[in-house]
Nucleic acid binder design. Sequence first.
DNA 1: TTATCTGCAAACCGTTTGCAAAGTT
DNA 2: AACTTTGCAAACGGTTTGCAGATAA
Lengths: 151, 151
Amino acid sequence: MERDIWKACALKSTPGRRAVLEVLEESRGPVTAEEVYRRILARGGEAGSRTCLSTVYRTLSTLAEKGLLLRSAGPDGVLSYQLRGTGHRHYLICTRCGATVEIGGCPLEELERALGAETGFAITGHSLELYGLCPRCLGGGDGESPGRKGR
Amino acid sequence: MERDIWKACALKSTPGRRAVLEVLEESRGPVTAEEVYRRILARGGEAGSRTCLSTVYRTLSTLAEKGLLLRSAGPDGVLSYQLRGTGHRHYLICTRCGATVEIGGCPLEELERALGAETGFAITGHSLELYGLCPRCLGGGDGESPGRKGR
DNA sequence: TTATCTGCAAACCGTTTGCAAAGTT
DNA sequence: AACTTTGCAAACGGTTTGCAGATAA
């Protein structure tokens, strides 16, 4: 039980919460609440059969509030979460199939410093994501229906 | 009637649409549909008294589809729009009072080029926003209620 | 035992949409 | 006159919440 996060945060360790955290740990990029939920169902077991979506949402919110998770929004407004590691990460996301590639290093640290000095802001964070088409979607014709509707 | 955008896009010029575009033109940063709507109401006149929120949403979507507007999402998932100028812009946003400061130049052009070559992605865009507390909110105590609830 | 957490269903809120009336060309 | 756009109100979909029962400590 690696460095008991639950006790440290004054939270109770429950199957649902543990499952959420595990999914987050094995995810490379930012994940949606829905996605976390689907993966918990997929893995089955104690949590898989009992955990509901609200618990996932609540756990994600709680962990984000405690500072363990980073919350961001995709271009369509859907929220994603990722474990806040030692340093944070940014991703290059394929707008067609959703494939993500991690970008090494954060190109904004210097900018933040300069900007803080220049504007007087106390800069607390940033959001950065790059979008494009991955090689596979560039090559093939259709990875997914290109016309999207609704939200 | 500057370079008739409406004709160019095969759209009809109506009071509501003109009002949306004007608000967008006089906005420095990304603005929310709600915000656009409020400003249209505030300016009164023909459009001010008749335009409804759906029209604002529809106009924003249409213009974004035509490529005239850039659509992005704030950290809470609310969508914002900004006129796509010659070059695009990024902003430093105060998380307390919402004040925005434009960041000169885009620090990502070089990164995009390097990353495209490295990963094989065709990079089509990015989202970047910095967050922090502006000098005024840093100094004063309260610019707005700090605890927020709901979405 | 006690305070926290969960499942469920309903509320929320930003956004989209169907439809008939109004407006633009 | 033909076609597009609007206002309204209702639908949508992701996210949050109230509540009573289950659970961790």
